[in-house]
């Protein structure tokens, strides 16, 4: 069954696949995860805020993003970001935005909606008394969030946040629709060039599987370890 396969195509291209493709994928995943968690936490704080209108804005944002397919959102931002940039800096014409920046903005804003739901659950998992105790000691809202609530929420939710990051890692493959050279994009380009679709796509699947499988095993081990001291 594998007799007429030519796996040398992988040997000949692995540097391109990993140093160009995978490097892009991992950088995008890491930056979007950090940006997404920060923005998501702010959205979660808005969602739980007692200030009028803020919870509604947060809710609309989250539900809006979660109603749309990621592919559509990728297209949206690919075309929209140049115009927004033009509007912000007041340029004559839509500005040039690189593929990387465009994807990073897209994934940060999109994943923030998902991360915000996780952080919201995390904040709500902290007993009310913790916030009351922080207030009673004279801590302000931001001090109480920064020193008492968020560190605990983040710690409790770390496994879930990491699992979502693995999902994000897989989702970044969708930048393929913008012909970007991420890991899958690189594999696809070699596949087309050499006419070796079967080998390249199987290899891509094996690599993605290995990375995600090992990562999720590690998350599960972490999950058993970080049960919060209480």
């Amino acid at each position: 069954m594998f007799s007429n396969f030519d796996f040398s195509v992988i040997l000949n291209s692995w540097r391109y696949l990993f140093f160009d493709g995978m490097a892009f994928t991992l950088t995008l995943t890491a930056l979007a995860a950090v940006g997404g968690v920060v923005l998501g936490t702010l959205i979660a704080m808005m969602r739980l805020s007692s200030v009028p209108v803020l919870p509604q804005i947060a809710k609309v944002y989250v539900n809006f993003m979660r109603s749309l397919p990621l592919v559509l959102v990728i297209f949206w931002f690919y075309f929209l970001v140049p115009y927004i940039g033009q509007w912000i800096i007041g340029a004559e014409r839509p500005i040039q935005v690189g593929a990387f920046s465009s994807s990073l903005i897209t994934f940060t804003l999109f994943e923030a909606a998902y991360f915000s739901e996780i952080m919201r659950a995390g904040i709500q998992s902290i007993p009310k008394g913790q916030g009351a105790a922080a207030s009673a000691l004279g801590l302000t809202y931001w001090q109480s969030m920064g020193s008492v609530i968020l560190p605990q929420a983040f710690r409790n939710m770390l496994p879930v946040l990491l699992t979502q990051t693995i999902v994000l890692f897989q989702d970044t493959s969708l930048v393929y629709v913008l012909s970007i050279t991420d890991f899958l994009g690189a594999a696809s380009k070699i596949a087309q060039r050499d006419g070796r679709l079967v080998e390249m796509y199987l290899f891509a699947a094996v690599v993605y599987f290995a990375v995600c499988f090992i990562a999720s095993l590690l998350v599960r081990r972490l999950q058993r370890r970080v049960a919060i001291i209480r």
């Binding site: 897989q170 493959s173 969708l174 995600c212 499988f213």
Partner: peptide, 23 residues
């Protein structure tokens, strides 16, 4: 569950569409 959760959907799409007929 592990097999189908740990491979991106897009890659699975390519496997079914481009790879399966060859196998």
């Amino acid at each position: 569950v592990e097999l189908f959760r740990n491979i991106p959907l897009l890659v699975q799409m390519f496997l079914w569409y481009f790879v399966l007929p060859e196998m």
